[in-house]
Amino acid sequence: MPDKTTVTPSSVAGAGPGQTGSGVDVSAPSVAAASELASMGGVNKPRSLGQDAWRELRARPMFWTAGILLVVLILMAAFPFLFTGADPGHADLRNHYLGDPQWTHLFQEDWFGYNKQGQSVWARTVYGARASVIIGICVTFAVTVLGGFLGMIAGYFGGWWDALLSRLTDIFFGIPLLLGALVLLQAFTHRTVWTVVLGLTVFGWMQIARVMRGAVITQKQADFVTAARALGAGNGRILLKHILPNAIGPVIVVATIALAGYISTEATLSYLGIGLQPPAISWGVDIASAKDVLRDAPHVLLVPSTFLSLTVLAFILLGDAVRDALDPKLR
């Protein structure tokens, strides 16, 4: 996940006006001196949005806390076998859920005990990370693309487009995310990670669209847009090369902050039995099945809950850090 924050703004920077280094012939001595000066922290070189954000971010302990949590989490999602040798699907009823967790057997199969089916709670928790991470990131991406696109059209073209798309946004805003996703997902008898991504995207894009629309409306009156048009640039070029890089900042902020919410909503849906379904391993599913033994074996519920909360916390911290870095006004 730290990849995402650093990659996205810097790819923005690539399109932005701040990019000067790559095209310049560095062998010319004066330019080399200038770039050396800039790398020493000189103020002459204009910094792009991405570079600015990175300078802000790396000075924050919150960012590094979130970063470490996220690296562990991503590793867990990508290579769960690094964390546990146990098979999350393997059920042995001799491993009874009433047996106490062996807290001292660090990272062993039984250090968090077993669930009702005699499966290792630790193994299931490790393997459950994947669904949450994939859904969180994919929904954020899909929502940003869909909402960003609709918001850009509404803001840039205005008039009928704006009226139509803004009413559409209002309509979807009337239905809370969880409620809409519940009703939509109930229609699918067979649900996978991608169905859940679809459900959350359909009812999650509105805020991004509004933010993008506002940002585009502000940017489209800027002089550089008039200049680009005077030079003969078409709508597509103006939108993608001139307006988008300048309007993307607040969108990235909103999207990063929303990511934690999607992970939490996915877990809630799975917990309600209308998200991922039992053969799939997900924290929400495990918490739902653990609630029946809450009284006798609370660890079966508390372990995946703790990991879920830590994941949400990590993404919230990341969102906060990104917001502070990209939007100095909110500080």
């Binding site: 809630t268 918490i287 919230i316």
Partner: peptide, 22 residues
Amino acid sequence: TLVVISIPVFVLGFLAQFFLGF
């Protein structure tokens, strides 16, 4: 507040039920 925001509502509910109730 950060802790509360991080804990999904259903987890918070079960925590309350387990500690306060059981």
